[in-house]
């Protein structure tokens, strides 16, 4: 009983921490934070903050635009929107979360969830089939084995606690 309470407490604690953590994420634009969301247009295919070409005109220009727009009080969304208007959607370091691009974001998690569902069904049916087969073929043997299993578990527990 104590263990169950402890486990529930632990899970609740983790859940509260996770929710609070997610909610605490703030959004204040800086040259660096915006630069991490767009691709440098010099052709290096790196995100703007990672472009390290010696003399990179496009990088300098983009950084200046970001700094000016932050000074002008523009939000991160406004600045990124400006770049999309200017260079097209390819300037974004990741696809937008709308329309067809949404599939990029959703599909991996859909695969995970779908796979999880299939896995649950498979394990559930395997476990049930195993139990049914055991019970129907030799109920007495199954009961006996269950008794031995419980005794083994108890003995192992005692052995480890010694």
């Amino acid at each position: 009983m104590k263990l169950k309470t402890y486990a529930l407490g632990l899970l609740a604690g983790l859940a509260v921490t996770f929710i609070t953590a997610t909610a605490a994420m703030a959004d204040t634009p800086t040259v660096s934070s915006v630069g991490k969301k767009v691709i440098c247009q010099c052709g290096c295919t790196l995100i703007l903050t990672n472009c390290n070409h010696g003399e990179c005109g496009p990088r300098e220009e983009m950084n200046t635009i970001i700094a000016n727009q932050i000074s002008a009080g523009k939000s991160e969304g406004d600045i990124i929107g400006f770049f999309v208007d200017r260079y097209g959607p390819q300037v974004l370091a990741s696809p937008s979360k709308s329309g067809f691009n949404l599939t990029a974001w959703v599909l991996p998690f859909a695969v995970l969830a779908g796979g999880g569902g299939i896995l649950y069904y498979l394990i559930h049916s395997w476990v049930r089939r195993g139990q049914t087969a055991e019970a129907s073929t030799a109920p007495e043997m199954a009961r006996e084995r269950e008794g031995y299993s419980q005794r083994l578990a108890r003995d192992l527990e005692k052995f480890e606690q010694r």
Binding site: I47, V91, A93, S94, P95, W105, P108
Partner: peptide, 17 residues
Amino acid sequence: VRGVKVSVSAPFFNNVV
């Protein structure tokens, strides 16, 4: 599919993977 070029870089992978 759409004839639109997009980039998929670190922010996508950090958030999804």
